[in-house]
Design a protein around this nucleic acid. Sequence first.
DNA 1: TTGCGATGTTGCGCATGTCAACATGGTTGA
DNA 2: TCAACCATGTTGACATGCGCAACATCGCAA
Lengths: 198, 198
Amino acid sequence: MRRSKPYHHGNLREELLEAAIRLIAEVGPTAFTLREVARRAGVSHNAPYRHFRDRDDLLAAVAAQGFRELTEAMIAAAEGHSDSLDRLKRAGLGYVTFALRRPQHFTVMFDAPMSRRKYPESSEAAERAFGTLLGFVASCQDAGRLLPGDSRQMALLAWTMVHGIAKLAITGRLPFHSAKEVLKFAEFVIGQSLPAAE
Amino acid sequence: MRRSKPYHHGNLREELLEAAIRLIAEVGPTAFTLREVARRAGVSHNAPYRHFRDRDDLLAAVAAQGFRELTEAMIAAAEGHSDSLDRLKRAGLGYVTFALRRPQHFTVMFDAPMSRRKYPESSEAAERAFGTLLGFVASCQDAGRLLPGDSRQMALLAWTMVHGIAKLAITGRLPFHSAKEVLKFAEFVIGQSLPAAE
DNA sequence: TTGCGATGTTGCGCATGTCAACATGGTTGA
DNA sequence: TCAACCATGTTGACATGCGCAACATCGCAA
């Protein structure tokens, strides 16, 4: 049995990250505060500095975690569908759904200018997410379900589309009042814009 | 001749707004500070409170001004082109160009959740911008250059597209290193996704 | 002319990010 | 075995920001 609080925490980095993610979900990136994270993790206001260079560094870690989860969400959304074009569309909807479910986290992931130099972990996680989308696109082309051509370019097209929808929906700019409506619109956009073969 | 500084400024609101826009262009919305704006306008750190409820209120005014300029930018981009579809495409490229030229301002306009209640001026300016785009879409449909259908839906499609491109480009997520490349990509996307008639 | 309301100013309390100095205790090498 | 070391936490301080309250100034209206 542990006597009250041990001086050394043992797993602080993880807990700080989780606390940060929860805090951001509650108050958003602007009101997000390093000191509040420390409070929630039950440590002093300076403890986080042993694990993160500064506020932005912690936010970058939060973003990285977000990108990993986004990747998972897209894969999970495509799961169970066998037609490659269907899988691509589902992945796109998964992207939007993720953004709608975790708007603040999504905001942290995309609002700060990404600097590969400073935050390599976050950058790599982001690239992995894009790579996943690229994979879906390439599969479609291989299967002849999408017009052939530069898959990278095509994946960028798909990405900017779902991203635009997600961002505008999150910030309340679209005239929709439920996730359902947004997703219906997203389906319309995807169907309209993907250069399906045949 | 005016002896040193008069106690009452005379046109402070305007100057604060301009100073704020310049400051944001330099340091971005995060580092933007009410006090620095006051400093630049040459007034005390509390003077702005006579003209803006708080920091967010000033930012909302900045956003409103941005939406007005964005509207102008789209109109100007379409000017001189007679074919309606051409005009629509140019307006879209104008949207992206505006974002690339004034990334920080664009960010202020779109990153904060929009509350119609709290910031009616900014909301209306934003709606006017969208209305402008809607007008271009409707013209295309009237001229039979775009498939008929719900123009509102179609305008939303166009908007989310250019917005996605703009946002990702601004935050350095697209693999392009010049505005020219981004615009070329934007042309590709627009050409690919607009459901042109014929 | 006077006094009132709009506009600026000074000064404050409180919160935050971050630096510096110090405390603690698990691990390690002699 | 045990002492020194280093990673990890803590305390305290400082500069800066936001926004409130009280006060100052001045144009305008009665």
